[in-house]
Simulated assay, not measured.
Amino acid sequence: MGSSFEAGTVGYGAVAGIRKALMSVIFVCCGFAAAAESVVVAALGDSLTQGYGLIEEQGFVPQMRRWLAEQGADVRLINAGVSGDTTAGGAARVGWTLTPDVDAMIVALGGNDLLRGIDPAVARANLEAILAAAAAADVEVLLVGMEAPGNYGPDYKAAFDAIYPELAAAHDALYAQSFFDGLDAASDPEAALKLMQPDGIHPNAEGVALIVADLGPKVLELVQRASE
């Protein structure tokens, strides 16, 4: 991504910080208390986030919106998922995803890197750029992991699987082990298959509901962090 990307994100972070500070001064000087606003969360991802193969209301973001509302959370969740996107695509567009109103971000990328056999070091660098951009913009992050299949070999799997927990720890981001944990595929593979679309890659509406229920508490924790 290079120094130009990093410089851009740092510049944006400074502007965002100045903007927030000025707004606080305006409200104090005018004697008004700022009204509580919804926490704005951008879901940066690929087809899993975008809702591939499903009618809009069945996708991850709409189902997560409903789940959060049922918990009483005042959240505006933005669908920033792009089908086919890799970690490189996410890094390339994170700057314009992080608009001044965004308070937090869910990052769920890496599945397409796995499908293409992209070097784990490249995926790591891209995800690090995304987390650095979020930090520069003072945006809290939930990093959702992705686990490599065994057919790439143990070295590849170990290197790829380690990316997410290590980057989350390094950047003080919240961490969820896998987007698919809610499907419980390890203990009941046959049941998990029934929760997938015919392509075996994307969850069906019922599968998305289980994924949302599993990730929902982490998203609530993200919202709480962003509210502090």
Rank of each mutant, 00 (worst) to 15 (best):
S83P: 11
D103Y: 07
G90I: 01
D161N: 11
Y156I: 07
G84M: 14
D103W: 13
I130L: 02
E147V: 12
G111R: 04
L167H: 08
V139F: 10
V82G: 06
A169P: 04
I118M: 04
V141C: 08
E128P: 00
R124W: 08
V102F: 06
A129D: 03
A123M: 10
A80E: 12
N151E: 10
Y152V: 06
V102N: 01
A92C: 06
A134I: 07
N79I: 13
R93W: 11
T87I: 05
G110Q: 06
M146D: 00
G84A: 14
G89N: 15
A137H: 14
R124E: 15
V141I: 05
R124T: 04
L167R: 01
A133D: 01
W96L: 13
G153E: 12
R76S: 15
V75S: 11
D161I: 05
N112E: 02
A136W: 03
N151A: 09
E140N: 10
M146F: 09
A134L: 01
A162Y: 10
A80M: 04
L143S: 02
M146K: 09
Y156A: 05
D101W: 00
F160I: 05
A104L: 13
L131H: 01
T97E: 12
L127E: 02
E147L: 10
A136G: 13
A123Y: 04
G145I: 12
L127A: 06
A80I: 04
